[in-house]
C-alpha cells in the first residue's frame, strides 16, 4: 500500500515537473536515439557515386499508432485530419499536418511525422485523440517504439534486397508505398519515400543490429568495379 502511494506521489511530482519548460528543454538535450552510437559508422560506411548508398538515422520521429475501422464514423473523423486513412496494403496518405499515415493492417495505421521537439504529447496526438473521442478504437503515442533509418542512393534497393524477401521492384513498390515485412528476420516497416529512398522503422531494440547489418550490406558498393571489398 505504501509503495502504491509513493508511486502515485512520484507520478504526480513528475507530471508537475513536465510543465516546467526549462527542465523539459534539458530533458530534450539528454535524449539519445537508439542508433546514436552508430552515427560515425553510418557516415564512414556511406558510399558516394554511381553505386552509392547512404545510411543515416532520423532520430525522434513522432509516431502515433491508430487502431480503428477506417469505414466507421470515427474512422472518417480521424481521416479528416490525416488526408483519409489508407485502405490497402502499401497505401500511404498525407494530411495537412504533413504527417504520413501508413497502412499496417485493415484496422491499424502508423502516423509518422518529423520530430516536433515537443516534450509532451504533440498537437498531432492531441487532435487525433480528440477525433477519436469515445469512439471504438485507439490512438497511442508510439514515438519511442521505433526509430527511423534512411537508406538512400542508387544502390539502396540492392542493399535491402539481400535480406528482404518482399518484392521491392518499383513495379510493386513505387515511391510513396509502405509495407510491413522482415529485413533479415527483423520485423520492419519499410516506407519508400522517394525513388531511391527507403525509410525503415525497426523497433528500437533492433536498431543496433539492423544498423550494423545494413552497413555490412553496403560494404561491397564502396569498392570500385568489384563486388568484394
Amino acid at each position: 500500500m505504501w509503495l502504491l502511494e509513493k508511486q502515485y506521489f512520484l507520478m504526480q511530482k513528475g507530471r508537475a515537473e513536465m510543465g516546467n519548460t526549462a527542465q523539459n528543454t534539458e530533458v530534450l538535450a539528454l535524449r539519445r536515439s537508439p542508433a546514436h552510437h552508430l552515427w560515425t559508422d553510418f557516415t564512414v560506411g556511406s558510399v558516394a557515386g554511381e553505386r552509392g548508398v547512404t545510411l543515416r538515422e532520423v532520430p525522434f520521429q513522432r509516431m502515433v499508432g491508430i487502431r480503428v475501422d477506417p469505414t466507421s464514423e470515427v474512422g472518417t473523423r480521424i481521416g479528416e485530419l490525416t488526408g483519409g486513412l489508407p485502405l490497402n496494403s502499401g497505401d500511404v496518405t498525407t494530411g495537412e499536418s504533413g504527417a504520413a499515415v501508413l497502412w499496417l493492417a485493415p484496422d491499424e495505421f502508423l502516423v509518422v511525422a518529423p520530430d516536433d521537439g515537443e516534450p509532451g504529447p504533440s498537437a498531432l496526438v492531441t487532435s487525433l485523440l480528440e477525433a477519436l473521442g469515445d469512439g471504438a478504437g485507439q490512438v497511442i503515442d508510439l514515438s519511442s517504439n521505433r526509430t527511423t533509418f534512411e537508406l538512400s542512393g542508387p544502390s539502396a534497393r540492392a542493399v535491402l534486397e539481400k535480406s528482404c524477401a518482399a518484392d521491392l521492384h518499383p513495379r510493386t513498390i513505387a515511391a510513396g508505398t509502405a509495407i510491413t515485412t522482415e529485413i533479415n528476420k527483423i520485423p520492419t516497416v519499410l516506407f519508400k519515400s522517394a525513388d531511391e529512398t527507403f525509410q525503415l522503422f525497426p523497433r528500437s531494440s533492433f536498431a543496433d543490429y539492423l544498423g550494423r547489418w545494413l552497413l555490412d550490406g553496403m560494404v561491397e558498393f564502396a569498392a570500385e568495379g568489384t563486388s568484394w571489398p
Binding site: 496494403s89 493492417a105 485493415p106 524477401a165 518482399a166 518484392d167 509495407i179 510491413t180 515485412t181 522482415e182
Partner: peptide, 17 residues
C-alpha cells in the same frame, strides 16, 4: 521456401507467417 498470398498484403515469404 513457400510463397503465400496474404489476403491483405499479397505474396510474401513463408517466414513472415
Amino acid at each position: 521456401m513457400l510463397l503465400f498470398t496474404c489476403p491483405n498484403c499479397g505474396p510474401r515469404n513463408e517466414t513472415e507467417f
